[in-house]
Structures are given as structure tokens and as C-alpha cells.
């Protein structure tokens, strides 16, 4: 591989791409964007991303959106590389991202625990993103996308999505 340098304007363009299923978050907020480099000799940009879930159907859209954003920023020669290790974790969602999620009515994830070894799972309390109450209940362990579960607030009665710790 030729030596590549971090590219700040290409990174800005790629980092502004929105997640197609959580339209309030950028792929940078989400931790999906891992690296952006530019080959100084050819100007070719390489963007490295990682999927949230292996079967995430949004990945193709994200790749296309990154290429479109880079082309618009003057980097037509761009390649998007997908890596799987280290595996994505909700711990990578930025503080700004968590605030945006809560503002959009999606309860942000708590810390991701150890992945294995619990025969009977524990669910920690999730605060209602609408009224802040801790008196909430899980309605469904899976939600509208692979990364969410569905909850209901007993205090304000509103249903809400929760991005589950992963």
C-alpha cells in the first residue's frame, strides 16, 4: 500500500453523511466512519467504515452516499473499504450523537456489557427520552431496525425507540 495521509476536507465530507435509518446522526456520530485517507500522489481517497450489524441493509446506501459526498467535495476518485474488526460497539457513539438521539425521541444506549455468558438476560432501566422518567417498560426486544428495541413510558404513556447497548 502506498503511504496515505489523513485528509481533513475529505473527512469533513464523509463525516457529514447521515445514517439512512437514523437520519439525525451522521456516520461519524455513530462510529461507523473509521478512517479517511488520501494518497498524495494520485489524490485517491480511501474511506474506511464498519457496519453496526453484519446484516445492516443500510450499508450499500451509506457507501453510495459517501461516494456522492466526496464527489461533490471534489474527490471523485474514492474508494470505500469495509472492515469488521474491531467489531462496532454502541460505546463508539459520540456524546453529540447521544444528545441528537435523545432529542429525536430515541433513548441512547447505556454502556455495552460483556457479550456472553448470561443465561437469563438482565435489562437495565431505560429513561424515557420524552419526559425523562425511569418508569419505562420494554414492549419488544427488537424494533424497526436491527439496532433498536421498542419501549413505552409508564409516566407519560409515550412509546419510544431505544438504541440497545451492543
Amino acid at each position: 500500500m502506498v503511504s496515505a495521509v489523513r485528509s481533513s476536507d475529505a473527512r469533513r465530507a464523509a463525516a457529514a453523511v447521515l445514517d439512512p435509518e437514523l437520519r439525525v446522526l451522521t456516520i461519524d456520530d455513530l462510529g461507523v466512519l473509521r478512517d479517511v485517507t488520501e494518497d498524495p500522489a494520485t489524490g485517491r481517497v480511501t474511506v474506511t467504515i464498519t457496519p453496526t450489524y453484519t446484516g445492516c441493509p443500510a450499508m450499500d446506501v451509506i457507501r453510495a452516499d459517501i461516494r456522492a459526498a466526496l464527489t461533490a467535495a471534489g474527490h471523485a476518485d474514492a474508494e470505500v473499504v469495509t472492515v469488521y474488526a474491531p467489531a462496532w460497539s454502541t460505546d463508539w457513539i459520540s456524546e453529540a450523537g447521544r444528545a441528537k438521539l435523545a432529542a429525536a425521541g430515541i433513548a441512547p444506549p447505556g454502556p455495552a456489557g460483556p457479550a456472553a455468558g448470561r443465561p437469563v438476560p438482565l435489562t437495565l432501566t431505560v429513561r424515557c427520552p420524552h419526559c425523562g422518567a425511569a418508569d419505562t417498560e420494554q414492549v419488544s426486544r427488537f424494533g424497526s431496525t436491527a439496532c433498536k428495541s421498542l419501549w413505552r413510558c409508564r409516566a407519560c404513556r409515550e412509546p419510544f425507540d431505544h438504541l440497545r447497548a451492543f
Partner: peptide, 27 residues
Amino acid sequence: DERLAAIAGKARKEVAYHLDHASLWTV
């Protein structure tokens, strides 16, 4: 095998949730 290790590391996290789900229903 690094490539396989990366795939397995990712799939493992997902499968843990499947096991939780199946366990809850079995009970």
C-alpha cells in the same frame, strides 16, 4: 485466521442476543 476472526467476533455479539431471545421464550 484474521479474516475469519473478524467475522466471528462480529457475529458473536449478535448471536448472544439471539441466545437471550430464545432463552426467554423457552422459559
